[in-house]
């Protein structure tokens, strides 16, 4: 019928590397003014005086950029229908203007629970990397995949 990847098709241990998201000062400040107006996210001058030594992205902005890369590269071709949440999110390093982010993801576990709306849960471990290949954020997403045979 289609060559979408359904719950049954997902293999534990599968890894993918994708994404190329250029972080700008304008976008850091725009996101933070709306959602996280702390001085080190919205005010370049005040940020210099903070423990971060300069403007850094809100951790939730990094999360938003992560889900954008997932939308652009991982969701097409997959029979996913959203996620129920995530575990173990760590903000490991500051994200600064000029950084270029990408994602490395690995299928960790499939939860063989009773079907909810014909879906199954796949636990996917992702690392968001900067241009030095340093992990800036890691998390395990709980993604809903439709079942080929609900």
């Amino acid at each position: 019928m289609s060559d979408l990847i359904y719950f049954e098709d997902v293999l534990i241990g599968q890894t993918h590397r994708f994404g190329h998201y250029k972080v700008t000062a304008e976008e850091i400040v725009e996101f933070a003014r709306e959602f996280d107006p702390q001085p080190f996210h919205v005010d370049a001058e005040a940020a210099k005086q903070s423990m971060f030594g300069g403007l850094i992205a809100s951790g939730w902005h990094t999360g938003a950029m992560f889900i954008r890369m997932i939308n652009d590269h991982a969701i097409p071709g997959s029979a996913t229908t959203g996620a129920i949440g995530f575990d173990g999110l760590k903000w490991l390093k500051p994200v600064r203007p000029g950084d270029v982010l990408s994602v490395e993801s690995r299928v960790k576990e499939k939860v063989d629970a009773p079907s909810r709306h014909g879906t199954g849960i796949v636990k996917i471990e992702s690392r968001v990397l900067n241009q030095q290949d340093d992990a800036v954020m890691t998390l395990t997403s709980l993604v809903l995949y439709r079942r080929r045979n609900p």
Partner: peptide, 8 residues
Amino acid sequence: GSPGVDSC
């Protein structure tokens, strides 16, 4: 700031 989120 925050170092992370255990679960969401």
